[in-house]
Design a binder for these strands. Structure first.
Lengths: 148, 148
DNA sequence: TTATCTGCAAAGCCTTTGCGCAGAT
DNA sequence: ATCTGCGCAAAGGCTTTGCAGATAA
């Protein structure tokens, strides 16, 4: 599929979703979203800011943060790192996986034996040395579900 | 297996590893490690600090942070959240997984079709509403491997 | 005794917030 | 015309750092 075309489609969809959500289609928002949709590098807010500045030199970092928050709250964007807001520690060095509540960030252990073996079919990027694999099962715990 | 006994074993092993690594076996370190080894809750540094304060009221939060860093660097402890240090964004809302370089934190997409289907065999904790599953393949990218 | 570690306090990110003006609907 | 969003700057968390005294080897 034509990448340019696909991006165009995604921008159209974005515009439409903004209308539906009652979000103003500002120039800043379009450029910020375009920067996000144009890469698979999973950028940081700072990286988006640098990218957007090329087109809107007067943009402020605060605006980038505000809109990233707005987009994620609206479901237009996702955080790769669900647990990114604070350091969580694990003294269990054995192989195991985790079950995470996306609301309260509670983490439960999942023994490796309880998960079907995970294997990559694809050859890795050239020279990538794979060390281990960690599965995150995401959802909402009973307590958080009860609290609506 | 007796939990009490297991903890004792882990403390002995910790003491031994400290010796091997040339790390001083201070009272603070023992208590911090004990707090980490005694829970499966994947605590934050702040939570460890609160726990350790019960036994060492004069402990400082800085000491807890320094030792957590020392332990992780030494391989005695692991971070659950490899990408916790900054927000990483993903405009691709379709199901897919990620390949992450643990050194430079580069993130590559892995299409869901390239991974064997992941399934939990175990019944979930009561009332947990599972939403999705995200696999992190961890390793070292070619560039970082080349840079030693 | 010597090197390392601790507590304290300050500094450094990253991110959020408040406010008045500007822009979208 | 009204409401929302933007830029600016300040404030707020979390984490690291520097230093002098204390502790482990």
């Amino acid at each position: 599929m034509d990448v340019e075309h696909s991006l165009q489609q995604r921008m159209d969809l974005f515009r439409q979703r903004c209308l539906e959500l009652g979000l103003a289609c500002t120039h800043q928002r379009m450029v910020i979203y375009k920067a996000l949709a144009s890469t698979t590098a999973h950028p940081t807010p700072e990286a988006i800011y640098e990218q957007v500045k090329r087109e809107i030199p007067a943009i402020s970092l605060g605006t980038v943060y505000k809109n990233i928050r707005t987009f994620t709250d609206a479901g237009l964007l996702r955080e790769v790192s669900v647990l990114h807001d604070s350091l969580r520690l694990d003294a269990n060095l054995g192989d195991h996986h985790h079950l995470v509540c996306v609301r309260c960030k509670a983490i439960f252990d999942v023994p490796e034996t309880e998960v079907t073996p995970v294997q990559l079919r694809e050859p890795l990027p050239d020279g990538f040395r794979l060390e281990r694999c960690s599965v995150l099962f995401l959802g909402v715990c009973a307590q958080c579900a009860a609290a609506q």
